[in-house]
């Protein structure tokens, strides 16, 4: 069975490897510091580490889509903005 029907490209493979690396990283983090670090952040939401990763990834997707729809390519600005956003989410949300 080949995977040619899935039409892989190295760019999409790298994207999914990044997502998988995030999940593996979260598993290792949980293993080192169990409990998920629940807290109530500035949005008054009760979040764990997993919630914060989800909010970061989902928000980053919309930052990139918004950038693409308004400013167009390249997306370097959106990627930097996403990293800042993810840092803020993990630090304060």
């Amino acid at each position: 069975m080949t995977l040619t029907w899935m039409a892989w490209t190295w760019q999409t493979a790298a994207f999914f490897c990044f997502i998988a690396a995030c999940l593996v990283g979260m598993v290792i983090w949980e293993w080192r510091v169990p409990g998920g670090s629940p807290r109530r952040g500035i949005l008054a939401l009760d979040t764990t580490r997993g919630d914060r990763l989800f909010i970061s990834l989902l928000g980053s997707a919309f930052i990139n889509l918004g950038w693409l729809g308004i400013a167009g390519p390249p997306l370097w600005g959106a990627i930097i903005l996403s990293l800042i956003y993810a840092f803020c989410v993990f630090r304060w949300v």
């Binding site: 892989w8 490209t9 760019q11």
Partner: peptide
């Protein structure tokens, strides 16, 4: 995953794809 792969490519069928970013 397949949908994500398709979203960055063009195809005219026959499993031949062209990367479009």
């Amino acid at each position: 995953m397949t949908v994500v792969n398709y979203s960055v490519q063009e195809t005219f069928g026959n499993n031949i794809f062209f990367f479009e970013g």
